[in-house]
Each structure stands twice: as C-alpha cells, then as structure tokens.
C-alpha cells in the first residue's frame, strides 16, 4: 500500500478507535503493510509512519496503561479536531484581508500553508461560503524563478528544523561567487525581495543573503530530525533586516534633517509614516530622520525630488547631494 493511503488509513483507524490500539492490533489490521519483511524492517516502517503523522501536526500519542487501562496508540478526537473559533466579523474581515495580501507575496514559502489556514478559519467559523470566495481563485504569485521558489521552500524547512545549508552565492557588489555554509536563522520579505539571515561559517558572523542571488542550495541531509545549531539567545530578525536603506549599519548613528516642498512633502510623510518626525515650515515640511546609520541610503530619496528636496543636516550629506547633482547636471550638457 502506498504511503499516502497508509497514513490516512492509520489516522482514520486511530480516530475511530474507542480505546488505545496496540502495535499488535495495528499489525493485524494492516497485514499488507506491517507483516511483510523482517521484524526490524516492519518496526522501522511503523516508526517512520508515526513520525510522519506527528509531522502533519496530528496528536498521535502512546498511552501507557495503568492497572486495568489498555496500553497503545491514540489520536484523541478532541485534540485532533479544529475547534470553533469565536472571531468577530471585523476580526475575520481584517485577518482575511491580511491573508489575501500575504498570498500575493512573490514566492512566499507560506503560500500553501496560508491558503489552507484561511480555509480552516472559514470552516471553523461556519462562514466558508462568504469568506473564501474572493480568495480561492487568486493564483499564488510565483517567485521570480522556479529555482528561487525551490530555494525559499528549502530554506523555510531548514529554518524550522534548524538544519545547516550549503549554497553557492553570487555576491552582487563584489561580483564574486562563493561557497557558503550557513546556519539559517530567519527569512524576511522586503519590497519584493526575500532575505536570508544566518550565521555564515565562511565569514564567521551573522550575514544577510538575497535569496535571488543564491545559485545552488542543499540542506544537510544527515539526521533530518535532529537540529544542527541553535540561534543565539535573544536573536531578533528585525535587527538584521533594516526596513529602510538608511538604517543599514555602516557608520555611527546621526540625525538627518531634510526639507521637502509641497505637494510631495505630504506624500512623503504619508509614505514614511511614523518612521520619521515631520514639522511644518509654511507649506513645506522638515523631516528628521533619527539614527541614520547609512547616509548614502538617503541619497536616492533626496535626489529623486531634485529642487523639491534640500538637506539641512548633516553637512556631509548635503555635500554628497551637491556632488551628485553636479554629475547629473553635467550629464545633460554637450
């Protein structure tokens, strides 16, 4: 019998049993599966099947008998079955909006899980007709390439199982291809890109890698169920993946002050949200960017608005902007 069928049969059998089922009874119930071959081979096969059921998130347990109780395996219906969730209409609508947005994240390794989770929420609230309609037909957004999709899914599994990966990485700025061994700590999605954060054995430090620049990737196949590493105590992913380019850690933090003219000033305030402090200066606004650790990360924002943006501080940034504007002005001559 094929594995898929056997696992589902076992689940149905244990769910429907009124009392714990011993291994002997399971063997007798599934003669084709657990009676052919040597004792050790049969035992190993059953161990693997049990592990698969646990991996599916199902509450398979071995009940140890006390006095007159029977000993054996159980899947208790109460622990198995999805309970009703008491979610208010607003909570549901917002959770589904967030879910439907996240389904559109390119190459998301969570796509299939998310879709199933939303199906389950809809089921548990009894509102599956209404809730799922707009979401079920939307296709998942693929990654930029099938290779990237595969890499993302492999990394997702490696993070959960804490398995080391080896990969061929094309560093963009140095334009060099290196072999890396990495303990994957986490994955972040930022503006269309997936970023892996992990301990790099080559650089002996926590590094970020653009998943799109990973060529080949393999998860350590040895002992798949025992972890290869522990992430450092108190590891926080967001500290390694700055939300804005000016928070990349390059130099000591400085505050930058930039004045933007209307009408773009208001749009910038809206776009950057609470990440910057804004004060009005007539129709214009002066923004304070606190704790900037990479002034170069502010350059594109200033330059793209040309005469509508002016750096007030620090002088270093104002100089860089001036030099860049001179280069742009030269590009138009001749």
């Amino acid at each position: 019998m094929k594995k898929a069928e056997r696992v589902l049969d076992l689940v149905a059998f244990l769910l429907d049993s009124r009392e714990p089922v011993s291994f002997e009874e399971i063997r007798n119930a599934f003669p084709e599966d657990y009676q052919e071959g040597s004792e050790t081979a049969v035992a190993r096969k059953f161990e693997r099947d049990k592990a698969d059921i646990v991996e599916l998130g199902l509450p398979l347990a071995l009940r140890i008998g006390e006095e007159y109780d029977k000993e054996g395996y159980v899947i208790e219906r109460d622990s198995y079955e999805l309970p009703g969730l008491d979610l208010g209409p607003e909570e549901l609508a917002l959770l589904f909006l967030a879910g439907s947005a996240a389904l559109q994240i390119e190459g998301s390794p969570f796509g299939r899980d998310l879709h199933l989770a939303m199906n389950k929420i809809a089921f548990s609230t009894g509102l599956d007709e209404v809730l799922m309609r707009p979401f079920s037909t939307a296709p998942a957004s693929p990654a930029h390439s099938p290779r990237q999709q595969e890499n993302l899914e492999a990394l997702h599994r490696a993070i959960a199982a804490r398995k080391t990966v080896t990969m061929t990485y094309h560093g963009l700025w140095r334009d060099e291809i290196t072999q890396r061994k990495v303990d994957p700590y986490g994955l972040a999605y930022r503006r269309g890109d997936w970023i892996l954060v992990g301990h790099c054995h080559l650089r002996k430090d926590v590094r970020q890698f653009h998943v799109g620049r990973i060529r080949g990737l393999a998860v350590n196949p040895l002992k798949p169920r025992s972890p290869d590493f522990e992430a450092p105590e108190g590891f926080v992913l967001s500290e390694h993946v700055p939300a804005q380019p000016w928070w990349i850690r390059v130099h000591d933090p400085v505050d930058a002050r930039i004045r933007f003219e209307p009408p773009v000033a208001e749009a910038i305030a809206s776009e950057l949200g609470p990440a910057v402090r804004a004060e009005s200066d007539g129709e214009a606004r002066i923004f304070t960017f606190e704790g900037v650790t990479y002034l170069g990360g502010l350059l594109p924002l200033v330059l793209m608005h040309r005469a509508r943006a002016r750096v007030l501080a620090p002088a270093e940034l104002a100089d860089e902007v001036r030099a860049a504007l001179e280069r742009i002005a030269e590009g138009g001559e001749g």
Binding site: L15, D16, S79, Y80, A102, F110, L114, M118
Partner: peptide, 21 residues
C-alpha cells in the same frame, strides 16, 4: 465512517503563515 468529520487543528506552519500575514 465516523472519522474525519472536522479538519485537524492548525499546524505550526499554518499558524506561522497567518502570523506573517
């Protein structure tokens, strides 16, 4: 037969997916 009348509970991956959303 009696089994499988309700889906199983959320798995850790499904929950992570919801938390990310």
């Amino acid at each position: 037969p009696q089994a499988l009348q309700r889906p199983p509970r959320f798995t850790v991956y499904e929950t992570l997916a919801l938390a990310c959303a």
